[in-house]
Write a protein that binds this DNA or RNA. Structure first.
Lengths: 248, 248
DNA sequence: GCGGTATTTCGTACAGCGTATCGGCAAATC
DNA sequence: GATTTGCCGATACGCTGTACGAAATACCGC
């Protein structure tokens, strides 16, 4: 290992740097036309909205853009990068452009409802969220955080306390939307398979109900667990009540 | 469509039925040894715990079990089925065997903490949750629901109200654990790439802080967003406070 | 015990995936 | 004009889930 080795180390360092530096801080390598980071992300979003995240593949995007598969790698380093960029794009939709209500509860509620809307509009966002990657610290992700902290300014909290309150609310929103999407897709699945879906699950549930093990939830089982899910604002208000009780 | 067609319809119906009937209600077609539904699921769990859900493949499981790839399909109709069974297995770990505390807050807290422990022990559970499928209505999933409803019995709620309160708590738990896992993996990733990870992200954050756009969260940015995340029990207590305020 | 049947096993194949590699071509530099 | 540099794109590798059908095996009535 001499001079050449040192060059190799340099290369490896560059690779490591690339793997750790957020995508948004990297330049979009290209100069030629027809292809661009923006076009790639836009196409990916279109496909994901239409057919789900699983349908988003490098080959597919290239085809739709009239480019060759490997050309996309001039603009993104990996599919994970593309996912980061998609996440960032969606995070932008969560931002509230007009002024926030002065009342902190109304402001947080507005932000939470917007988050939910966006999540339902792009159900694949949930899959993306769990895809690891420092996706939350993109510019738009931070703008969301900024907006949320600003919404709480009336409470005059320490930054860390404000952040914790926001995290708790965001956690609830994420969990709720996740369940909402899940229920929605199950319903759609059952619908696609005809009503027989219900008819096949119901005896199974009835059997469990008759087993005597599930006394507390027998009424729920009898309704086929068709409960339309919780009430979003109700749960949110519970959380906000608790925050208000502590800090308000 | 004559007699032959009617037979074909019958086949198609059976296929549809299979696609909609929960796995747990189906028999595990086996009779030979070395291979069994249980063995398959156990192997899958081991792989997932050790190397993540992505490492779980039919071929891989078959290899570890000394069987041929396609043999697994005698016990499982699809990989989605396998995921359902894995989910069910994990749901069992969430159940609390010993008696629950009489106080409803303590009981719900115990259940929530257990859920969190299990989620952290099997980080891939999060990926599984977002995989659609009627995974939550397996026997163990329903036992969890039963246990939660029973925990709230002291509040004497309508079944639907109880279910909503539980759903809200579960949503919060899911969201929190999801974020916790995300942060944990990012930390591990940065650690694996050396401390340079932080060093590369920090200038990016500092640049944003200097831009003047993020006044409210500048202190957080300065700390590199290293905030160790919210406090699980604090957020949970906020939610429980809100529930108590309404029903207590 | 034995034949027939039902079930299980498993080789092969297909269509798809992300992306490493590398030959050749075009543009930029001297 | 000659040389170097850097990018485009084709090909290929190893992986995925699983449909299909032939072969092998176990079970059951006799």
């Amino acid at each position: 290992m001499g001079v050449g080795a040192s060059e190799q180390v340099s290369d490896r360092d560059r690779a490591k740097a690339r793997s750790v530096t957020p995508v948004w801080a990297r330049e979009s390598g290209k100069r030629r036309s027809t292809l661009s980071r923006e076009a790639i992300v836009t196409a990916a979003l279109r496909i994901a909205d239409a057919e789900g995240l699983a349908a988003v593949s490098i080959r597919r995007i290239a085809t739709e853009l009239g480019a060759r598969t490997m050309s996309l790698y001039s603009y993104i380093d990996s599919k994970a990068d593309l996912f980061d960029l998609m996440t960032e794009e969606i995070a932008g939709e969560v931002l509230i452009a007009e002024g926030l209500p002065a009342d902190w509860r109304q402001a947080i509620t507005a932000i939470a409802c917007r988050s939910r809307e966006v999540g339902l509009r792009h159900p694949w966002q949930i899959d993306l969220v769990n895809q690891r990657s420092h996706a939350m610290i993109g510019p738009n992700g931070l703008r969301h955080l900024e907006q949320s902290v600003a919404a709480l300014s009336g409470l005059r909290l320490e930054p860390l306390d404000a952040w914790r309150a926001i995290a708790a609310v965001d956690d609830y929103v994420l969990g709720f939307v996740s369940r909402e999407i899940r229920e929605r897709e199950i319903a759609r699945h059952a619908e696609a398979g005809g009503l027989e879906g219900e008819e096949l699950v119901q005896p199974y549930l009835q059997g469990l109900a008759d087993s005597g093990e599930f006394v507390a939830i027998t009424p729920l089982l009898r309704d086929g667990l068709r409960c339309t899910g919780g009430d979003f604002e109700q749960g949110l208000n519970w959380m906000l009540d608790g925050i208000e009780r502590q800090y308000g």
